[in-house]
């Protein structure tokens, strides 16, 4: 049984169908990657899995439990954390307060080990603990967003385009950190436009086109697929 099962998911905005018939299984300790062009429905899928959007039909099962009807704030407590597109840093909170927000769902548990883990992955956050989130650079905000999601000690970490707007060497660093987080035992579902680097770290990957899944395979298979090379990997 997969850790996270998305089955026949359909999401609409009013009458507009954004995604349909999406089925993806994410096994424990895998990295699964979703690639697709702008507007393909990647963000919609991630928001439906994390409970910010309601599924019109289909189901989302996590650790064998149907979570389709659970609200967003309840899904974090189950162990699903999303790093949203655009990072969602609380601008008027310090770095430390943003990280504290990550522990909001940990009812009564002591988050000290989470702080240690996050500061080890992102030493910069430790240096900037008192800086306002809104004044951090884009790359720093991405680190903070990932670190904050880890504070809830999730079993599956959803990342929506973490490389967006970052310089190449920063992107490499972010991908290295995602691998590191995965190596520490966190399952990862990653949405990316940077198909090359994303597929290189993917155990499995899916291609999303106009709201539907058109291809699935291992990361290597998709990297070598000629049509995907043409469309997503720049030939």
């Amino acid at each position: 049984m997969a850790l996270l099962e998305i089955k026949d998911l359909e999401v609409r905005y009013g009458r507009i169908k954004a995604v349909e018939e999406i089925s993806v299984d994410v096994d424990a300790s895998e990295i699964v990657v979703l690639i697709g062009a702008n507007g393909a429905g990647k963000t919609t899928t991630m928001r439906a899995v994390s409970g910010l959007l309601a599924a019109r039909t289909g189901s989302i099962t996590f650790k064998g439990e149907d979570v389709t009807r659970l609200k967003g704030h309840q899904r974090v407590r189950k162990g699903i954390s999303l790093v949203p597109e655009g990072r969602g840093i609380f601008p008027g909170m310090t770095v430390r307060e943003n990280l504290d927000m990550g522990t909001y769902a940990l009812q009564g548990k002591n988050p000290e080990s989470e702080y240690d883990r996050v500061f080890e992955l992102f030493p910069r956050l430790k240096e900037r603990e008192k800086q306002m989130g809104g004044t951090m650079s884009g790359g720093e905000q991405q680190m903070l967003a990932i670190g904050r999601a880890l504070m809830a000690n999730p079993e599956v970490l959803l990342l929506d385009e973490p490389s967006m707007g970052l310089a190449p060497q920063f992107i490499r660093q972010i991908f290295a950190i995602i691998r590191e987080i995965n190596a520490q035992g966190t399952t990862v579902l990653l949405v990316e436009q940077n198909a090359n680097q994303a597929l290189a770290i993917a155990d499995r990957a899916c291609v999303l086109e106009a709201g539907r899944l058109t291809k699935t395979g291992t990361g290597r298979e998709l990297l070598e697929d000629s049509t995907i090379r043409d469309v997503y990997l720049g030939g």
Binding site: L82, P91, A105, R148
Partner: peptide
């Protein structure tokens, strides 16, 4: 500051 992200925090 950010209702959606607040939801994601639980």
């Amino acid at each position: 500051q950010d209702p959606d992200t607040a939801t994601l925090m639980g």
